[in-house]
Nucleic acid binder design. Structure first.
Lengths: 326, 326
DNA sequence: CTGTTAGCGCTTTCAA
DNA sequence: TTGAAAGCGCTAACAG
């Protein structure tokens, strides 16, 4: 089932079979027909490895994600996959848990020519180490990026989104607005906290408080709220930097006998699917997850096709989705 | 940076470099040292494509999933990925949306030797078509399988789980137990419905009703409940074949002014993460998602390493997790 | 329009 | 213990 057998069967040379396979013009119709018939008759499947080795491109993209079970990540991956497929590329997934050892194993595939480029979603704090491994292979940083690294990025304006969210809550009459943040390895946690603080200042709100969740899970969100509820003056609104945390916040609030939104307004971040089916439905800042993924692929392919195309830092729009929780 | 350059630099032959690379015994220590030094000096990275072509194995596994944003799927993928990595394999992800065209493009990588085997999570109804494409390449069916296909499978006993769940609800005093099912392309939807009906019969419950959700989403779950609430006699319990549907059921129930569980008990299926942070927390039938993924990898590797090892249909245990919704 | 030939970079006999 | 040489299956000059 190699190209040579097909050539024999069709009574032509390997080169001609190759031409037919690659839709090369300049093959006489009847020759083409002979070849096609031979291919059909022996159910020939080209060995893609050999082709990739020869052409020095694999049409595969590596995607490094900290946690595929995080709904935000999986939606972005969906966008990546769809766009990659549309452009004739396949994706190789590494669910890294942000463990450098696992990532290194996958990045060896990059240097080993098994993939043509890489998209990362790792926390900004890991990016310098990744830089060491990736070198200057084609690379796009998605959602999280390190401004000092010369690789393109796709993200939203987190500072602005956070600023506007606090203003929104204030406009609803809230005066004690707390932030539920996660750990500071993420660029977004810095940026959203900065937006939060700027807004408090701008609005002359003298009450402010930040609780840090141990990780991005519902339980950690609940724990963060319980912490806030122990304050001498309780918050009347919570802005959580992720929907998953917000789910935990609402859960703990109801458990503590508070009404949402009457006693405590809650706003989340990301716009993952099921938040509209919570009780109450969650107000959130929606990120264009599919588009972030798709755009990352486009920038990466630009880079792959024209290695010295400029690095770009793309900022995509976000959107507030108002629901009953605020 | 080819193996040849390294050989030159070290003053040995390509073969020797290859031996060192593959930790082949029978290389004199000082020769090895020379080679290692040369590798280091020119920062050599082996071309994995060439190696794969030569050895005729890629150490890559293809994973076909209908929807990566479905939390059940992403948890299984997590298990697959972890086990694959532990065994020195990488995974290539196809988020197919159950579109045969997309799957075919990925399966070409199987026949094209880019991957060594495939794990599918597609609905049973698609499996015969996939069989055509996959032929007799190493294949494991995960969660969904077609008993008539000669490929191994990993799943739970859905009929039993559904049967027991209805008995459990009945033991809590429920008498009008409805089923919220999804479309019947899935094997599990048949099996769980069968278990449900068997239990009604066994328990002499003469009230029974099934609502079919259009797809596996919260909204579809809500719609299904609304349908059930229009019945002359309303259910006092709902068993949903997926947690995502159950979230929608609870949402619609509360919206309709019902109390959960007082007026309506709700049980879900799968055991995805955030259901314990709902209000009320969801009772569910937990599937061993990580383990299902991991076991699939093991069976697949058995098959890859010993092509005529027997086909096995593995049945894993499930577990009821009782929470406040029932 | 088609065939011949030379590799892509690696592993693996077979000899020495 | 090491080297020479063949070849995995394909594509891409270069001739004809």
């Amino acid at each position: 089932m190699s190209i040579e057998k097909v050539a024999h069967l069709a009574g032509v040379s390997k080169a001609t079979v190759s031409r037919v396979l690659n839709h090369n013009p300049g093959v006489r119709p009847d020759t083409r027909a002979k070849v096609l018939a031979a291919i059909d008759i022996c159910d020939y499947q080209p060995n893609l490895l050999a082709r990739q080795l020869r052409t020095a491109q694999s049409h595969m993209l590596l995607v490094l994600i900290p946690d595929i079970t995080n709904p935000f990540c999986s939606r972005v991956v969906q966008g990546i996959e769809a766009e990659a497929e549309a452009q004739g590329y396949h994706i190789l997934l590494c669910n890294s848990g942000s463990q450098l050892r696992r990532e290194a194993a996958y990045i060896a595939l990059l240097t080993g020519k098994v993939v043509d480029g890489v998209i990362t979603m790792d926390a900004a704090a890991c990016l310098q180490e990744l830089k060491e491994l990736i070198g200057d292979a084609p690379w796009v940083q998605c959602a999280e990026y390190d401004p000092s690294i010369a690789a393109s990025s796709v993200a939203i304006d987190n500072k602005e989104a956070a600023f506007e969210t606090v203003c929104y809550l204030a406009s609803k009459g809230r005066r004690r607005i707390a932030l539920v943040n996660c750990d500071m390895r993420y660029l977004y946690s810095h940026q959203r906290e900065e937006g939060y603080r700027n807004a408090l200042e701008k609005l002359d709100l003298n009450w402010g408080s930040v609780a840090y969740a141990e990780n991005v899970s519902c339980d950690a969100g609940s724990a963060a709220l319980r912490e806030l509820l122990m304050l001498p003056e309780r918050p009347d609104a919570v802005f959580a930097v992720s929907d998953v945390l917000a789910v935990g916040v609402i859960h703990a609030a109801l458990e503590a006998g508070l009404r949402v939104p009457e006693d405590l307004a809650v706003v989340g971040f990301d716009g993952i699917n099921f938040t509209s089916s919570l009780n109450p439905p969650l107000t959130t800042i929606e990120q264009p997850m599919n588009r972030m993924g798709a755009r990352s692929v486009q920038l990466l392919l630009n880079r792959i096709r024209q290695p010295n195309s400029p690095v770009v830092h793309e900022v995509l729009p976000w959107k507030r989705v108002e629901r009953a929780s605020s």
